[in-house]
Design a protein around this nucleic acid. Structure first.
Ligand SMILES: [Mn+2]
Ligand SMILES: [Mn+2]
Ligand SMILES: [Zn+2]
Ligand SMILES: [Zn+2]
Lengths: 138, 138
DNA sequence: CCTAGAATTGGAATGATTCCAGATATCAAG
DNA sequence: CTTGATATCTGGAATCATTCCAATTCTAGG
């Protein structure tokens, strides 16, 4: 985890009034090092390689904290285990139904704004999720 | 359930090589009579009022069958219990985070096509989901 | 250096969904 | 109208991601 990333973690936690802990650093670095939308269980096993004593409960706690801080997004597809994504740019997700892998799809600049405009006035959006699924060729 | 709806059920089941049963009729009519995106549990209790002996397992089975036939869509928001929607027109969903209620949002004609176009070629979409959440003003 | 409050931990609890095996019903064929 | 092959239904057990809990340890401000 580079200095810049370390600082965004520290800063995001500070803004949210949360403490910096070795477990949070380890879990966050796991997310940044391999951005393949891992499940909690995958994050757990990867984190254990760096910090053998870490518990599953703590991994759940850390991920929840990061989501609360806006450092990480949850990615859900149907009822599958929740995945986590540290990409903060506006993007959609594509799930390959053959491999289960999830890909980031960048959104053109106006897309989110365009989408929000289809909502009648009484709906005050806080978040929009766009997800595709299908097969990825080749 | 009107004659037209009854026929689309019969026809959809026939196309998929499935049998027409009293339980399937009851569950389908429950979905059509109150289109408020009920959870399985809600569908279960509503169906029991019409057919007291029906089991929860059967409600799960019927709903899965309808989804397979294309008669009904599953609606998932985060990890909440799955909801069911018999609206076959292209639409998005808005979840009011204060009440938990889910609303249908009609999509303009070109919207889905526009969205598919943001995908690089190698992604062969089978389905697109758009979901909003936030507060619904009064 | 101290200490109050926050975070971590292992294990138990939860709850939506899925699985199972025996009983029952549908419907195509005769 | 019968019959039989299958599909469906049912109650209860099993699954498993996630949440909860109470005891222990740690962080960070004073
Ligand atoms: Mn949210
Ligand atoms: Mn699908
Ligand atoms: Zn992503
Ligand atoms: Zn709907």
């Amino acid at each position: 985890m580079g200095k810049h990333d370390h600082e965004s973690l520290t800063e995001a936690l500070r803004r949210a009034g949360q403490k910096l802990t070795p477990q949070r650093e380890a879990v966050y670095s796991v997310l940044l090092d391999k951005r393949d939308h891992p499940t909690v269980d995958e994050v757990f096993h990867r984190t254990r390689e760096r910090m053998p004593g870490v518990s599953l409960a703590t991994v759940y706690n850390c991920l929840e904290t990061f989501v609360g801080c806006g450092l990480v997004r949850q990615v859900n597809h149907e009822r599958e285990p929740t995945r986590y994504c540290p990409n903060l740019a506006p993007h959609a997700h594509f799930r390959d139904q053959e491999t289960g892998r999830v890909y980031d799809i960048d959104l053109p600049p106006r897309m989110l704004e365009t989408l929000r405009r289809i909502l009648p006035e009484e709906f005050q959006t806080e978040a929009v999720e766009i997800s595709f699924h299908g097969k990825r060729r080749r």
